[in-house]
Amino acid sequence: MKILVCLKQVPQKDAPLKLNEAGAWIREDVSYEVNEPDAYALEEALRQKEKHGGEVVVITAGPARAQQVLREALAKGADRAIHLEDAAFVSLDAINIARAFAAAIKDETFDLIFTGLQSDDYGYAQTGVILAELLGWPHATIIMHIEKQDSGIRVKRELEAGYFQYVDIPLPAVLTIQSGINKLRYATLIGIKQAKNKPLRKIGLSEVQSAIGGNQIKIEKLYVPQKSKKTEMIEGAPAEIAKKIVDHLRNDVRVL
């Protein structure tokens, strides 16, 4: 199976984020990492390839720094990478990012495309589904298991309230992968060495520009959310804090 995995580079989970001076976006001088569900999507693609053979290709869109997530994926076992390299990709809406990806792979023939179910930065949770529609492919979302069948695949979708559902789906198809579908691997030293010689194709904004339209959704303002609740902060040494909490548990929460 030939599988494309869409990766996004996002600020590290613990990174303290600050608004930039213009107040329009976050300050970019933070540490980045691969979006967590995307890491699971990559792992699943590598496992499918190990079982059934084929090729794993990774793609990302973003400035030069985003190449790091591709390098890591190559070190873990992806065969080649595609980098839509331009800072402008960061501010595209979901449909335009999907259009850029579709344009970038127009000469490829994949059986499957994986994305993480959503990104930790924007949280739009729609790039994969949009990409499927643009390509005219079927899709399934929030996938926890994938099994190859004689024709197509059977996937396990996570539903709400603890329910699941199997869905049979023909190929080619797009799947959005849920965190926890598998156990992530680490890159090996040999893998890191080999990654240096693996192909990485760069595509500039101008090469996919004709596929992209104006953004239809526009972020007008980014800001620190106003608290909806008044939080009483409890301070002091650990023993004092513990006493104060127990007082609240007894007198206000009434559970002691």
Partner: peptide, 20 residues
Amino acid sequence: LLFTRQMFQGKFAADVSFAG
């Protein structure tokens, strides 16, 4: 009409408008 949504795992909020 602007829609408010959380960004960066709730660390920020954004007001978002429709174009087109």
